[in-house]
Amino acid sequence: MKILIGTNNRAKTKAVHTISSLYYPNAEFENKEVPSLVSSQPMSDEETRQGAINRAKQLMVNSDASFGIGLEGGVNEIDGVMYICNWGALVTNDDNVFTATGAGVPLPKEIATKLKEGFELGPIMDVYTNTNDIRQGEGAIGVFTNGLVTRSDMFEHIMLLLIGQYELSKKF
């Protein structure tokens, strides 16, 4: 089984490897950096979901892989509060599309303000935490859950949801 991953981001790649290897121990993985075809900072669940789908679909063009995985992080606003949102898509070689969403936590107002000004969450979080490239590690979700849920953990949950749907579909 060959699984394509639509990113080189370490947190996302780790999640795909960790969960997929549990169910497909002999799987072969290949990372391909593909564009989301949405804003560099998705600002809604709809846009973030579409980015994940776009990544997964692009992976499967002229591919013999079993499926492609697209993972996308974004934000959405509910009742004036900005939340982290995350989506995943699994697209099969026969063009079935499965999607799932993950955890969300509210962001501080000063971060939401910067997002509304057009900045991306990753670089904002680098300044906020005085680190470099936090999106490759714990991510904003890790910061705002005090390390209890990292970005990779969150995408692992999404991977479980995607693989569960995929495996169920093979039964019918």
Rank of each mutant, 00 (worst) to 15 (best):
G6W: 02
T7Y: 13
N9T: 07
N9C: 11
R10Q: 14
A11H: 05
K14V: 07
A15I: 05
A15R: 01
V16Q: 07
S20G: 10
L22G: 08
Y23Q: 14
P25D: 00
P25V: 00
P25H: 04
N26T: 09
E28P: 02
F29S: 06
F29E: 06
N31R: 09
E33T: 12
L37I: 03
L37W: 04
V38Y: 03
S39M: 08
S44A: 11
D45V: 11
D45G: 11
E46V: 10
Q50Y: 03
I53T: 03
I53L: 00
I53A: 06
R55N: 08
K57G: 01
K57L: 04
V61E: 11
N62A: 15
N62G: 15
S63P: 07
D64C: 05
D64H: 08
F67Q: 12
G70M: 09
L71W: 01
E72G: 04
M82Q: 14
C85Q: 13
G88M: 11
V97W: 05
F98Y: 15
T101A: 09
G102T: 05
A103E: 01
A103W: 01
V105N: 06
I111T: 05
T113I: 14
T113P: 02
E117I: 00
G118E: 09
F119E: 15
E120L: 06
P123Y: 08
P123F: 09
P123T: 00
M125K: 13
M125I: 13
V127C: 04
Y128C: 04
T129A: 13
T129V: 09
N130S: 14
N132F: 08
I134F: 05
I134L: 14
I134C: 04
Q136M: 09
G139W: 02
V143C: 07
T145D: 15
N146S: 12
V149E: 08
F155L: 09
H157L: 12
M159C: 10
L161E: 14
L162V: 08
L162C: 07
I163L: 15
G164I: 05
G164P: 01
G164D: 14
Q165Y: 15
E167L: 13
S169A: 15
S169K: 05
